[in-house]
Design a protein around this nucleic acid. Sequence first.
DNA 1: ATGAAAGCGCTAACAG
DNA 2: CTGTTAGCGCTTTCAT
Lengths: 339, 339
Amino acid sequence: MTARKKVVSIEDVARAAGVSITTVSRVINKFPTVKEDNRRKVEEVIRRLNFKPNLAAQRLASGSNYTIGLEIPRYEGIFYSFYAMEVFRSVGIACDNLRVDFLLHLTDGKTSVNAAAVGGVVFADVINNRQHVEDFLKAGTPVVLMNYLAADMDVSSVSVDNAAGAKTAAEHLIHLGHNRIAFVTGDMATQAAQDRLEGYKTALKDAGLAMTEEWVLRGDYSRKSARAAAEKILGMAAARPTAILVSSDDMAMEMVSAFIEGGLKVPEDISIIGFDDDPVCLYGPVALTTVRQPIKEMAQEAVKELYLRMQDPDRQINKIILSTELIIRDSARAPKRSP
Amino acid sequence: MTARKKVVSIEDVARAAGVSITTVSRVINKFPTVKEDNRRKVEEVIRRLNFKPNLAAQRLASGSNYTIGLEIPRYEGIFYSFYAMEVFRSVGIACDNLRVDFLLHLTDGKTSVNAAAVGGVVFADVINNRQHVEDFLKAGTPVVLMNYLAADMDVSSVSVDNAAGAKTAAEHLIHLGHNRIAFVTGDMATQAAQDRLEGYKTALKDAGLAMTEEWVLRGDYSRKSARAAAEKILGMAAARPTAILVSSDDMAMEMVSAFIEGGLKVPEDISIIGFDDDPVCLYGPVALTTVRQPIKEMAQEAVKELYLRMQDPDRQINKIILSTELIIRDSARAPKRSP
DNA sequence: ATGAAAGCGCTAACAG
DNA sequence: CTGTTAGCGCTTTCAT
């Protein structure tokens, strides 16, 4: 509630500079058609009077709003993560660079971005808020999905090929000589978790390896679930897997700790590959081999696409899919010769 | 850039409801002076036409803006942390509850919240952006500081008594019988890190314990710095500390891992206390004793205070200081009898 | 309890 | 290249 103070207006500037408000408006908006002389004069006055255009008035008059909304689920599982942090940071920086405002909305699936306050919205992951996407779409608000591919919706998106990423990682393990490979899922409410599982399955099938349901352990991205998975594996005395593909680095690190505490060596006794390329990978007992997903690029692309769409709502729909990258470090190697 | 579409306006509603736009405005703003009959009629039309008041117009006409800006430094050290996550989440939820918009600005010290876009701003930590605080203050924009106490500025703030928190934790170690207590700092650019160090020093002095500079290890909240600190301590063969107070849980957990890998047992050989009450505490090899700081409460208070200040800019300045709480778990216990 | 009318500060034709 | 003028959609006196 900016109190009604005597704020300097465009009119004050015009008067002080000896030009019309239109000319002032032109220099504010960097129109090329202003005499260099006038421009300088106006800019000087603006600086001297510390004039700030009234945003509400600009938006009302122009009918435009360069505020970008980011709606992201706030469920604990996906929220307290390197991934979410990186999304905020990247979207924040992208907005900063484009000089647009960044309205953040953490949703529990019930409340949505304030439609009246934004010119467009990025949805990072779609979980229980698919309806919101449709609402915005129907209302004609520019929308871009991030880290979520909606094959059935007519909407631009920037996502990552999680299935391919997991497949590549699993293949890496297979090439190393593993044939007993377990998998720990993320929160299956997320599309990424589903796709990663699928990539794992594909790789095994392609290699002609048997897929044991027992070796697909349900995680939810939490360290707690990772520890539970590790304990389950430690309990498989008989034909224990020799390698594990884990759906996040955070979980992978927790499992590494649990294994070491349980008397196993990583990677000597068991290989582990994570997902995310969280910096945390680098500082544990072993540097973690992981699948990097380009969050920063994804955010940049999403914001850019949205920005363009705000300028041209009839722009063609783009479904961009970025690739992951396998980062090979020390936590996965060839299995010990079978006994 | 919401395209100029034929959006339903207050006029459309008025016409359809057979009243004046003033009456419509009154029901939008919940004025009590509207005949029940009219109110119902208008509300029905609003619903039917799916009318959304134009925010820019409302703000321009009323001169008010209920958007809250959050400016937070984006340096990696403090950014990728449970703390920052919790700040976002808590501020986000607080805004959601108050039904105000939440504009996030991650600053590198150069760019600042868009003053024209917000009605007030919360500064979470002040590092290189103190000038921004002063600018907003000077401009008459309501401001509240969070997790930062500026004794010399005339501004409301909500902070945590970090010195007392660290002191209590150190005293806990002393009472357990430790007299060789080390300390790992956070990023000393933050006020919290400075205060925690001070609390540690005070506790030692009060207990008449010698303070060795060698036992104050510089960390920066990163796992990397924690590992370095742990290695330093592992190297102190002679009179190694028997307990360590660490300025964040994340660092503490990393040190626990490093110690275990180095052949020490926690807490048998060495006691550790962290800071934050990050959920990560619970799932490592030992549940971490820690100092909890009430981030959620801090955020709620900050947003509430700001909200009140936006309604009454001349409101009295409040400097709220919340307390920490020592959460005793398993990582700190009495030292083994001296050899 | 309700409506008419005057702006809020700025942008965008349009005319010059 | 510049100024005039008409709104943008809503809130807010001021009458009634």
